[in-house]
Amino acid sequence: MTGRGKSHRWPWHVLRVVAVLVLLDTLAQAALAGLFVTGDLGLLAWHAANAGVLSALTVVQTAVALVVRRAARGPLWPAVASGVLVVLVSAQQGLGEARLLAGHMPLGMAVFGCATALVYWAFTHRPSASPPAVRSRHGVAE
């Protein structure tokens, strides 16, 4: 493998790490919610604080997915799905703060499903060793 091929692989590794962090934090949110619902009222503050962490992680994941798209010639849909996750988590926070659990809990399941799908894809997708050559306006590979 050439040095150029290796230079385009690092975004994929970063995306995998960040996607796993998003999924693990989503699981932590569910655990905190479950423990709060069973009576440990002090965990509501942890759940609310961790929502901010999850929100930040989804923004980072979106940025990394865009780097994968741009630098490593990856597909666009993971960046779009990550952006959707940003919106879902923001809506989730709003519903939680408003105590609208009828929407908050199902939306949490959607966040978990989307995060799981992104992790699955990140670990099963096999990027090419080097990105395809970029063609100039004259049809010649650069």
Rank of each mutant, 00 (worst) to 15 (best):
L118A: 05
A48H: 06
T116R: 05
V59E: 06
V134D: 05
V14G: 07
A28K: 13
A28G: 00
G103Y: 12
F36I: 00
A141F: 00
R73V: 04
R16E: 07
T58M: 04
L32P: 05
A56E: 04
V53C: 02
L66V: 08
V60I: 08
C114Q: 09
R126K: 07
S128F: 10
Y120L: 04
A110W: 14
Q29P: 14
G108P: 05
L27F: 11
R4F: 14
V18L: 10
P132G: 08
A65C: 02
G52W: 03
P106S: 12
A28S: 09
Y120V: 15
L54N: 08
S130N: 05
A110T: 11
V86L: 13
A141R: 08
V59W: 11
A122F: 09
A19W: 15
L43F: 02
G108K: 00
A115C: 06
Q29M: 09
E142Y: 13
G113T: 06
V14H: 01
V17C: 10
A117D: 06
Q92D: 04
L57V: 05
M1E: 12
A33V: 09
A56M: 14
A79Y: 01
G5P: 11
V119P: 10
G74A: 05
A65V: 00
T26Q: 10
Q61P: 07
R99N: 11
P106F: 15
L118Q: 01
A79C: 03
L27G: 12
E142C: 13
V14S: 03
H125D: 15
L41D: 15
Y120E: 06
L57M: 02
G83S: 12
P132R: 00
G108C: 01
V37E: 15
A81S: 12
A122M: 11
V86A: 13
Y120W: 15
S82W: 03
S128D: 06
A91M: 12
Q61G: 05
A141W: 01
V18A: 02
G3Q: 13
A117E: 02
G39R: 04
Q92N: 04
T62H: 11
R9V: 08
G83K: 04
R70C: 14
V89M: 00
P127Q: 01
W12P: 00
D25H: 13
L21P: 09
A115S: 08
T124F: 10
W46T: 08
G3T: 11
V134C: 03
L21N: 07
L76W: 09
S130P: 03
S7F: 04
G39T: 09
